[in-house]
């Protein structure tokens, strides 16, 4: 295994909070910074990473054939058409779930680690075998959640499980942040969530309709050089991962209208 490869699990517990979108955008953003990055779709049951990256028509072999040794790793890797530093290792047939073991995950990840600087593992939702297999191969983790009680509760379960393994550091990404709702105290604030989960915040991602547009097209926001809020946030997460000191976006400074200012006044702590 290449000694400096970072193997990062991207997990959430709850489904639909943005694991795969983060994996795709982070993969592209890291590749753009010139580091060789592999994204591994560990969600064998419900794979989608290929779709978000727009690579669904280029898949010939998958992780399954690599494990069965019916093809070489570089035959299964799908290089991104516009970002040559990024490659996807697609998930195999859902029937893989019947026999896949932590050993298999570790084998496939160490093969990737020989060739890449970063290996991002897109973890399935849940805390069952799929999660455990994926986690067994990871060195560090990014837990992604949204400011909703069900997502935060599930994230807490996942953090508890990660803490029992030697996965370090575990960092938090807070997704789908709506500054206006936080200002009117109808959404958990960034501090509320970081206090509760007690994890260092790697970044927050503002709610952004452009994310849906980009997934429709199979072109992650970070790929198209979009100036949209979420694109900026994903870019910041990638740069922080690389060790750059980028200040966090302050959601309370996002809206500048008189109405937003009034909302912020109303949220001032008195005692």
């Amino acid at each position: 295994m290449a000694p400096n490869t970072r193997i990062i699990l991207i997990c959430s517990g709850k489904g639909g909070v943005g694991k795969t979108t983060l994996t795709a955008n982070l993969g592209i953003a890291l590749a753009q910074q010139g580091v060789k990055t592999a994204v591994l779709d560990a969600d064998f049951g419900l794979r989608n990473l290929d779709l978000l990256l727009g690579l669904e028509n280029r898949i010939v072999y998958t992780a399954q054939e690599v494990l069965e040794e019916t093809c070489r790793l570089d035959q299964a890797l799908v290089k991104h058409k516009r970002e040559s530093n990024l490659a996807l290792l697609p998930a195999g047939n859902p029937r893989m779930l019947d026999w896949l073991k932590p050993d298999d995950m570790q084998r496939i990840v160490s093969m990737l680690a020989e060739k890449f600087d970063y290996v991002l593992i897109d973890c399935p939702a849940g805390v069952e075998d799929g999660f455990k297999n994926a986690a067994s191969a990871a060195q560090e983790a990014i837990v992604i959640t949204t400011p909703e009680i069900s997502a935060v509760r599930d994230a807490d379960r996942v953090i508890g499980l990660l803490n029992t393994k030697s996965i370090k550091p575990i960092q938090l990404v807070l997704n789908r942040v709506r500054p206006k709702m936080i200002a009117s105290q109808e959404m958990l604030s960034v501090n509320d969530v970081t206090d509760i989960l007690a994890l260092p915040l790697l970044g927050l991602v503002l709610e952004d309709e452009q994310v849906i547009v980009s997934t429709n097209r199979g072109e992650p926001l970070t790929l198209t050089g979009s100036k949209s809020p979420a694109a900026r946030c994903y870019g910041n997460v990638a740069r922080r991962l690389q060790g750059e000191d980028i200040p966090l976006i302050d959601p309370s400074k996002e809206g500048q209208s008189l109405r937003d200012k009034f909302r912020r006044l109303m949220a001032t702590k008195i005692f």
Partner: peptide
């Protein structure tokens, strides 16, 4: 009271039990 506070209180309670 605002729903964010309600959410925070409910979460803290349920997490204390979960943990």
């Amino acid at each position: 009271q605002s729903s964010a506070n309600t959410a925070k209180e409910r979460l803290q309670l349920v997490l204390a039990h979960d943990r």
